[in-house]
Design a protein around this nucleic acid. Sequence first.
DNA 1: ATGAAAGCGCTAACAC
DNA 2: GTGTTAGCGCTTTCAT
Lengths: 334, 334
Amino acid sequence: MKPTIYDVAKKAGVSIATVSKVINNTGRISEKTRKKIWALMEEMEYQPSVVASALTGKSTYTIGLLIPDLANPFFSEIARSIEDRGHSLGYNIVICSTDYDPEKEAKYTSLLKQKSVDGIILASGFENHKSAKELIRQNFPIAVVAREIPSLEVDTVSIDNFLGGYQGASHLIGLGHKRIAIIARDVWSNRERIRGYKQALEEANLEFDTQMEFVKDSAVESGKELAGKLLDSSAPPSAIFACNDSLAIGVIQAARQRGLTVPKNLSVLGFDDTIWAKISDPPLTTIAQPIREMGYGVMDLLIQEIKGQKHVKQRLILLPKLVERETTLAYTGE
Amino acid sequence: MKPTIYDVAKKAGVSIATVSKVINNTGRISEKTRKKIWALMEEMEYQPSVVASALTGKSTYTIGLLIPDLANPFFSEIARSIEDRGHSLGYNIVICSTDYDPEKEAKYTSLLKQKSVDGIILASGFENHKSAKELIRQNFPIAVVAREIPSLEVDTVSIDNFLGGYQGASHLIGLGHKRIAIIARDVWSNRERIRGYKQALEEANLEFDTQMEFVKDSAVESGKELAGKLLDSSAPPSAIFACNDSLAIGVIQAARQRGLTVPKNLSVLGFDDTIWAKISDPPLTTIAQPIREMGYGVMDLLIQEIKGQKHVKQRLILLPKLVERETTLAYTGE
DNA sequence: ATGAAAGCGCTAACAC
DNA sequence: GTGTTAGCGCTTTCAT
């Protein structure tokens, strides 16, 4: 059997209180007994049970992460950075993939609460805020990342999506493109990006497709398909702005399929700057989200919240940044 | 405050034992009180504390997953499938990224034990088996996936790497290639794959590079670099077999950089069949590991172990399979 | 069919 | 400095 605090106390000839005190470095214990007990714990391979300690009201040092899909590099990179930060702060992460399904989110949050996690990070991208609201109502520590819930009073770290859209479109405009298409999935962040894009086009007196069609998911295939339609139309764009890197890769494939060379015949711009942008061929010019900082940021916010070191909720808005690689080029047509 | 079992017992006018029984569906409770208590729990938003229940010796229904790096698609896909399977079996996963670092692995296993996880899955790819040995010695439920530890008595699911290497080389040989290079990181699974590859070459009376150089990590860049060297040599290969998809993508890039078209001027073959193989351009011919089945497999093995439903350890060896896409072609040179 | 009570491993007053 | 003890929320005999 695993040794308990009683076992080490008995062996050390002291009370469990004393052992508890040396474990937690509290109270006044003589250097001598302290050392003796440490040695004993080592020898007996004693590990304090966080379950028991949690029952007395202390932390479990584990936090839940609700994320749509680890297969999406943006999310796996976010998860990784959250885990890293958590680890260095002494927390473990339990991962819950929601697949953009509000029901799964609800189920997981319930489970996580039963397990007494110290807090929950929501990275799920869908539009239903039921779980978040619920958690807030119950005063459960949460923080959200890469997703905005304008109507909720909650710690959040996200990027300025409007600016990202604006930057992207401006870059393309600066390159002389006149027909700039945008492809995106219909979610909040993308609608913001599209707003930014439209703003930039308007300022440049350029037209945009008022009939723009959304893509049903972020799969490469979907990007390829929609880009294909665009390229096959009577007035194909000379640049396509994809609202994430996967979609952008699909665009490149659609172009290549039609004998077009990127960026010579078509400029393509991505969003996120995940690893996919780097392994893309040619390497993708993209609007970078500071993924690492975002992960660190939410974790820090949540921990502060948990520890009660902070009494006013915050929204941390990081700024996206254009990363020029090799898929955009000055327009030379006509 | 969160309601406890006492709160609902009091409100229901029964003892906590009764409530406990309806929660767990044990003992004999009249339909009437059963219903009343369920209703009450609903109304009070009561959630049993798994921490408290764990303290009485029951499961925590959480299992730890040690994995090198979520940024590697093979591992994030494995993680995803493990999580899926766990979820449907009622388990949560706490993710621990080890970065191939034995010390991190040791630290995490210790932490996980303190948290009383029900079991641990090891997917870490490095060569040090200290943690695994330790865990086994302590009789802690573990299972390993995508990694073999020939000397250890432990539940394992992996693939036949030798066969994978053999299949890959055979495919290339069948296409008429005579100069077939292989690039890999120096780890156990790859050494097996290389054995298979050599075997195939030998059977076909083909030579292989006895001076073959290993790559230092699985990054695309490393693959590109080494492939570059190979292609620039005096007797460049007409086909390159990369021991994972990332490396293969690097190979394609190296080829493209030199004006070679894949597969026309160079066949390239990957390994794993992660999503990268599908988004690669052209789509990568690769040796597929049945990732989903592997994840499901370990999870099942581990759960059986935990529940004591199984008294003999197993090794489940799944077979890899060639997936032909568009990066390999019959040799037409000379 | 239901309840009393002991115990799971630990923390935190409080006493000595 | 160290020990005693009452919980923490739940499960589980064993009575009734």
